[in-house]
Simulated scan of single mutants.
Amino acid sequence: MTHLLVTGGGRGLGRALCDEGLARGWRVTATVRRAGTAPAGAAEIVMDVTDAGAIAALAGRVGPLDVLVNNAGIIGPAARAIGPLDPAAFLETFRVDTLAPLAVTQALLPCLRTAPTGRGRVLAISSQMSFMGYAKSDHIAYRAAKAALNKVMQGLATDLAAEGIAVVLIDPGWLRTDMGGPQADLEPAEVARAILSVAGGLDMSRSGQFLRHDGTRRDF
């Protein structure tokens, strides 16, 4: 049975990914900030993804793992590049959106190396706002953090290629979530179905790529 772990599984796209995994008959583990927010049927781990101690203990709580989706993230301050600059808020956005996915993936490598299906796969939820050809400046901390996430996950893909662990970035599109707002284009459940279809068929030929939620390749 495929074992899926989703960070930030208590709401939005993360919860939709957990729901879809359960609907497929997969074993699902969700990390959440508040107890009782993971979907029924999912194993719940209450933790902050920036907590080094919690991350260090994660592998012992998870066990063999097929699919890791680094989904937890924050939008951060709305400020543009000309300010006002809030260094603490800027750095917190990087801690959650860039460093936490890298740290969680590193911690769970022993679990991915013993994947029940024989091939561990890592997906990281990025954003169209990270695209280097998209020059808008609102929420500059978020844009920069997601662009940095793309680079560290690309580096992981390079480092893990010899082990056969595929790593990809996912642009989920504009979602109707607390972050995306009610005017957004896409329903989380629809996008979650597409992302887990990508995860199910992911192989090393696609590792290191930046993909749309439907699996088509996009530019960094």
Results as ranks from 00 to 15, higher is better:
2 T>K: 07
10 G>W: 05
11 R>W: 02
16 A>H: 06
23 A>H: 05
23 A>W: 02
23 A>G: 10
24 R>Q: 05
26 W>E: 02
28 V>P: 01
29 T>I: 08
31 T>D: 06
35 A>V: 09
37 T>F: 02
39 P>N: 00
44 E>L: 01
54 A>S: 14
56 A>P: 01
59 A>K: 04
65 L>S: 09
70 N>P: 09
73 G>P: 14
73 G>N: 11
73 G>L: 07
76 G>T: 14
80 R>I: 14
86 D>A: 11
88 A>C: 03
93 T>G: 06
93 T>N: 06
98 T>E: 13
100 A>G: 08
101 P>S: 10
102 L>R: 13
102 L>K: 07
102 L>G: 07
103 A>Y: 12
104 V>C: 10
109 L>I: 12
110 P>D: 14
116 P>Y: 08
118 G>R: 09
119 R>A: 15
122 V>Q: 06
122 V>H: 05
139 H>D: 11
141 A>E: 05
144 A>C: 12
145 A>V: 03
148 A>W: 04
149 L>N: 04
149 L>R: 03
151 K>G: 14
157 A>Q: 00
162 A>Q: 11
168 V>R: 01
171 D>A: 08
172 P>M: 04
173 G>N: 09
181 G>S: 07
186 L>A: 08
187 E>M: 12
189 A>N: 07
191 V>H: 00
192 A>H: 02
194 A>Y: 00
196 L>F: 01
196 L>H: 00
198 V>H: 03
199 A>S: 01
201 G>H: 13
203 D>G: 10
209 Q>I: 05
220 F>K: 11
